[in-house]
Amino acid sequence: MANNFYNEILTDHNLHPMHKHELSVCTCSRDGINPSCGDEIVLNLNIKNGIISDGSFTGNGCAVSQASADIMLDLVIGKSVDEAKRLHGLFMKMITDECSEEELEELDEAAALKDIAHMPARVKCAVLGWRTINEML
């Protein structure tokens, strides 16, 4: 039996995403698809002078994919491209189950997805947003 990863953070970001909308000013967009759950997102970023000044996503899919994308945008908006890349690295490290406590703290709410590491079939859902943003940066 799996650990309970349908915690309040995840269900709240799924039901009430802050960043799930179109973006009027955006410098780049990219589709991300996870065929196993049929999750689809379009990630939009507005990058100015190496800083992610705004971002959003649209799409549909399982709660894990949608909540994870929303949490990710919370983390990276206002950060530099390099910092976002570093956070991507940390998230991937967490998903493969080898993060330190300090590193988990840096990931803030994204750390709520830590237990996904025990569910190989769902890892693709959790990393969809992160994988897509990394391809854009």
């Binding site: 039996m1 309970n4 990863f5 899919g61 399982c62 709660a63 894990v64």
Partner: peptide
């Protein structure tokens, strides 16, 4: 409103 993969994961939590 519940994606089938989410449903299966919750079923799993309940054994």
């Amino acid at each position: 409103d519940v994606h089938p993969h989410d449903a299966a994961a919750i079923f799993d939590e309940s054994g």
